[in-house]
Design a protein around this nucleic acid. Structure first.
Length: 613
DNA sequence: CTAGGGTTAG
């Protein structure tokens, strides 16, 4: 029924006086004879798209006592709660007047709450349902878990889980998949895995949830390994588009280019390469793995480039040091008639920050809200603080944070702290630490940066103080970790790592490299090292940073001339930066290091950052 | 006895 028809029906409906059959004349008039009056009302409800019509239907239901008709009620509830009209308060008031709601009606409300702005209400309704002695079926449980997921309520989820076991729904694989997702979201990776193991039948969605669980709980390498495990003889589960999407994210995180290429091939072989979400993920993966050519190739081949595709490409260019090109792409995007959104501007501002385009960045930031209606978020401010901080305009950056209309988070203070380190601004660093403490978000990394600052300034007294404080508070340092991929396998290194099977060769190679670099004039930079030791010892202690181990392994295990790609979870230190720079010349190797904030491309003894770092 | 459940882009 078209909108006009609905309107016509409704107007005659409200004026109709003949209710003796509980059905207004207008309902029987225009509708085929095979339909009962009740069905026609259902059709009317289903096709209703305006709130004013809704009120009229509601009035009609009340007037004709159809409130007692479960089907009518249910449809009405679904309409109010789930259709584009969705109004959860309206439907909950309607629901409240139903004397004895059926399980179906409860489920409709539970579903509505699970996708509403107040998902926690779903849990109260679930308790209400149980209080009335009704049994929650698999669907009811599924909706409640969805609510729990929305508010990350592990406790609520555990209660529902117990009830599921009691009610004998423990072999409903779709329900278990939802539960797995809940445990995954709440960081209970082991619980999710346990559920997966106990599942009687595992379809591709269950595998995907497991992979997503690993991906979001710092078990990225496990996530990657599941791609082959699920396809193996024992499981015979064919990865789908979602699996590929998750795999590409994992590859991005691990810098696993070869594996990413394998997934790309898989995507092509299965004809998924027309899917824009997969193409966009491919662009992001290739960019983040430092392979801009391939990212651009995918981008170029896309028929319908949407805002996500453009943003991915812009960020890709920016993060790889092609700030000017990123800004050009932004202009091209607008010429193509694609409207930028918040994430596009994150990429653009990032581009400015990476090439030191301070004034341009400020202009973009200004235009963003004025010309495009994009409200600045914490990431935009973060880029700006980075931009100002790196340019040495630390006080301006500090003022910017103080003037923000959103609460500064720990990341933004940390960004400023990074600027303080570059420019050795002790005083500001101290007050930033103050803000971090205030946020109760102080992390080891912050103190490490502060110690770097004191160490550079040779302020051993203060340095000792900080170290003592850290020890007292039992603050754990996040271990620095570098990964390098070889033949599709990610190798992981931590500081002074001795766990690698080829550790002897690696350390031997590292010593050899150090010797060669020394001849070429490389001197270990000890300023950023934490320990107030003798210079000799410090030079030694520096040699085993995880990125150096990864690089040494790369030199050892790949043919001469092969580019070495390393990903590091923290910021690269000054010394490792110099080390990679020298190595790129002496060993004639392109070295690409992706650290927490950016890419460093080393070639012929130089870095793409040109000292702007 | 209607219809209603899981993963997922930058």
């Amino acid at each position: 029924m078209r909108r006009a028809a609905v309107s016509r029906h409704l107007s005659s409906l409200s004026s109709s006086q003949s209710h003796h059959l509980n059905v207004p004349v207008c309902f029987t008039a225009n509708i085929s004879h095979t339909q009962t009056p009740k069905q026609s009302l259902l059709d009317l409800i289903k096709s209703c798209a305006r709130r004013s019509h809704l009120l009229q239907i509601h009035a009609h239901i009340v007037r004709t006592s159809l409130v007692l008709e479960p089907i009518i009620c249910l449809q009405f509830l679904s309409l109010v709660a789930l259709s584009p009209l969705k109004s959860i308060s309206y439907s909950s008031r309607f629901f409240d007047q139903i004397a004895k709601p059926t399980t179906f009606q409860y489920n409709t409300m539970l579903r509505a709450y699970s996708i509403s702005d107040s998902p926690e209400e779903g849990f109260s309704m679930y308790r209400d349902l149980l209080r009335r002695g009704l049994r929650a079926d698999a669907l009811a449980s599924s909706f409640v878990i969805k609510s729990c997921i929305r508010v990350s309520s592990l406790l609520g989820g555990i209660q529902v889980h117990a009830r599921i076991l009691r009610d004998g729904h423990e072999s409903d694989s779709r329900l278990l998949t939802t539960l797995m997702d809940l445990y995954s979201i709440c960081g209970k990776c082991d619980e999710a895995c346990k559920l997966f193991d106990e599942m009687p039948k595992r379809d591709v969605v269950a595998w995907n949830v497991l992979i997503s669980c690993c991906l979001h709980n710092n078990r990225t390498r496990d996530a990657v390994s599941l791609f082959d495990i699920m396809r193996s003889e024992t499981h015979r589960c064919e990865p789908d588009e979602v699996t590929c999407l998750l795999m590409l994210q994992a590859c991005s995180n691990l810098n696993a280019l070869e594996f990413g290429e394998r997934v790309h091939k898989y995507i092509e072989e299965h004809g998924y390469d027309g899917a824009s979400n997969l193409c966009n993920s491919l662009i992001a993966m290739y960019s983040r793995c430092g392979c801009l050519d391939k990212a651009y190739e995918v981008f170029k081949g896309m028929k319908d480039k949407n805002v996500v595709s453009w943003s991915a490409m812009i960020s890709g260019l920016a993060v790889n040091g092609y700030g000017r090109e990123a800004i050009e792409a932004f202009g091209e995007m607008q010429r193509m008639g694609v409207l930028p959104d918040d994430q596009t501007f994150t990429g653009v501002l990032c581009a400015c920050s990476h090439c030191g385009l301070v004034d341009e960045g400020m202009v973009f930031f200004d235009r963003m809200s004025k010309d495009f209606g994009v409200v600045p978020n914490i990431h935009h401010y973060g880029c700006l603080v980075d931009l100002l901080g790196r340019a040495g305009r630390l006080d301006q950056a500090y003022q910017l944070i103080l003037s923000m209309d959103i609460k500064p988070d720990s990341t933004i203070w940390r960004t400023l702290l990074g600027g303080c380190r570059i420019h050795g601004h002790d005083a500001l660093a101290e007050s930033v630490i103050g803000h971090l403490i205030e946020l109760k978000a102080q992390e080891a990394g912050d103190y490490v940066l502060l110690m770097n600052i004191y160490s550079s300034a040779g302020n051993w007294e203060k340095l000792t103080e900080v170290r003592k404080f850290m020890k007292e508070k039992a603050i754990q340092t996040t271990p620095g970790c570098s990964t390098i991929e070889l033949k599709g396998v990610a190798h992981e290194f931590v500081v002074d790592d001795v766990s690698h099977p080829r550790k002897d060769e690696i350390y031997k190679m590292l010593d050899e490299i150090n010797g060669q670099l020394k001849i070429a004039g490389y001197v270990a930079d000890v300023s950023s090292e934490l320990h107030n030791l003798g210079t000799e010892e410090k030079g030694h202690a520096l040699s085993y940073h995880s990125e150096k181990l990864a690089i040494a392994f790369g030199v050892l295990a790949t043919p001469p001339g092969t580019p070495i790609r390393v990903a590091k979870n923290l910021r690269i230190c000054v010394d490792c930066h110099n080390f990679a720079m020298a190595l790129s010349g002496v060993y004639n190797r392109e070295v690409i290091i992706r650290d927490r904030t950016r890419f460093h491309h080393f070639r012929e003894g130089r870095c793409s950052c040109n000292g702007y770092w």
